[in-house]
């Protein structure tokens, strides 16, 4: 049923796929690149705030609403590890932090969470990238790393 060429092609296709899948695990294990954590939801996520856990560890609780994020601006010292929690109090919003490969959905009734380390100072823009109504194109926030010192 299979001729030589077909067999070779199937072997190649399987090898290439295996390579891709290996890369996923490599990124996951060695590079600690993961998707949103799955947490059960509760009311405390509905309060926007920045919490300092210790000198280098912060938690930011984002609340998305039509059409802004709170906290709109947060200040973090350079080198901090930051847990980001994101939820929405109305419709679905998106949450994309520039240059950081943080890409979450803010869904009412659920909380997305990821952890990111800011090693470079700068202003990191956050853009809403899910259509959330007529003001969607205005919806931005910022994480300011190290400047201005607060």
């Amino acid at each position: 049923m299979l001729d030589k060429f077909e067999r070779n092609v199937i072997i190649t296709a399987l090898t290439v796929s295996a390579l891709f899948i290996f890369s996923i695990f490599y990124a996951l294990g060695a590079r600690r690149q993961d998707v949103s954590e799955c947490l059960p939801y509760n009311k405390t996520y509905e309060t926007a705030r920045v919490e300092q856990i210790d000198a280098k560890t912060y938690q930011i609780y984002y609340v998305a609403r039509m059409w802004n994020f709170e906290p709109a601006i947060s200040y973090i010292p350079v080198g901090s590890e930051v847990d980001l929690f994101v939820t929405s109090l109305d419709v679905v919003h998106g949450f994309n932090v520039f240059d950081k490969n943080v890409n979450l959905m803010a869904v009412p009734g659920g909380v997305a969470k990821t952890t990111v380390t800011f090693t470079e100072p700068g202003v990191y823009k956050i853009v809403c990238h899910e259509f959330c109504g007529t003001g969607h194109q205005n919806m931005e926030a910022e994480i300011i790393v190290n400047y201005p010192r607060k």
């Binding site: 799955c38 890409n103 869904v107 969470k113």
Partner: peptide, 19 residues
Amino acid sequence: FGDPSIGRGVKLTQSILTF
């Protein structure tokens, strides 16, 4: 993948099945 409430195991399984 960016959604809350769905476990990472489910996401990873379906990612691999996509291949």
